[in-house]
Amino acid sequence: MSAAATLHRIPRHPHAWLAWAAASQLLVLLLWWRLGWTWGLPALLLTHAAFIVPVFLPRVRLYAPVVTRLPAAGRQVWLTIDDGPSDDTPAILEALARHGARATFFLVGERALARPELVTAILEAGHEVANHTHTHPQFRFWALGPRAMAEEVGQAQRTLAALAGSAPRWFRAVAGHTNPFVAAPLRAHRLTRVAWTTRGYDAVDGDPVRVLQRLRRGLRPGAIVLLHEGARHGRSVELVEAALCLLREQGYATVIPD
């Protein structure tokens, strides 16, 4: 069985969380009825927190299955680059070629639609494109309702499928957030949610030393490495180059699950 087949985890029961939610609130009612508010109120707060906190935790599987690492036996990592395509894409492709590295580019649909030639360049260079929503609603993705969530995932999927000639297999949520409505469109488009094992916060921090220190802490065989392009600090190409040097120094090869 291929690595991709092993990792491909399409949500089977998009609304399974409802059963847990109903059971938890029945428990709250029972506690409140039998033991009063001193037990019922804390139980109410705790059960609500149990469904709210996972929204902001990228590796938690409550609302959809998620891939957090490769089942790799050797010193291999899955290099992923978010937020493109951008003006940085050509230089990043050159850096990848110099290092003999392969990557999965998690692309934003509307950005890909505006720069279709860069999608073609990514694919022609032997890399992979994946779904990173259509408009990248950074500050409100976690709060999207079912219709808006379906549009963000579905429109990006249709755009990237048309540009690439085949539908993406992987999806990365904005900031890794989820909510109760993310699983249904993933199931509809046969997408698997991908998180990460290690990140350097290179989207917000342009200092190579700090970025590499964070990346190094999470490097291990099978790690999913998260990088970005088009960051506002303007140093994304430099940071990708530095990360590639780090991987080479540590003896890691980059692979795409295929």
Rank of each mutant, 00 (worst) to 15 (best):
A3N: 07
T6C: 04
H15V: 11
A188W: 02
G40L: 12
R75Q: 15
R169Y: 01
N131S: 13
T133R: 13
Q25D: 10
V108H: 05
A73R: 13
E152D: 05
I10Y: 11
P146G: 09
L113N: 05
F139A: 11
A22R: 00
D258T: 15
Y201K: 08
R199K: 03
V209M: 07
T254A: 08
H136K: 05
P137I: 12
A156M: 04
G165R: 10
W142Y: 07
Q25Y: 14
R102C: 10
A183C: 07
R169S: 14
Q138P: 01
D205M: 02
L215S: 09
L246A: 04
W142T: 00
R147E: 14
P11D: 05
R232F: 12
A5L: 06
A73S: 11
W142D: 04
G100D: 07
V60P: 01
P71L: 05
L239W: 06
H48R: 11
A121R: 14
L244I: 11
H15I: 03
G234Y: 10
R248L: 09
Q76S: 02
V225E: 00
T133S: 15
H99L: 06
A148I: 08
T192D: 10
R111I: 00
L31D: 03
H228R: 07
L45I: 13
T192I: 03
R111C: 02
A21F: 15
S2A: 06
A50S: 06
L163K: 11
V60F: 09
A188T: 03
N131D: 00
A195Y: 01
D205F: 01
Y201I: 05
P221L: 10
R61N: 04
R140I: 13
T6D: 10
P221I: 08
Q250K: 11
D258Y: 11
A162I: 00
E128F: 10
V209K: 13
L212G: 06
A112K: 07
H13I: 06
A64F: 06
L118V: 00
A188C: 04
F51S: 08
A195R: 03
L7E: 00
W78G: 03
M1A: 12
E128I: 04
V194F: 09
L18R: 05
T192M: 09
H13L: 13
A161Q: 14
P42S: 09
F51H: 13
R59G: 12
L45K: 01
G200W: 01
A148L: 10
A130L: 03
T159I: 14
H177F: 14
D87N: 10
L246F: 04
I224C: 01
E94I: 07
H136R: 09
A5H: 12
G230M: 05
V129Q: 09
R59D: 01
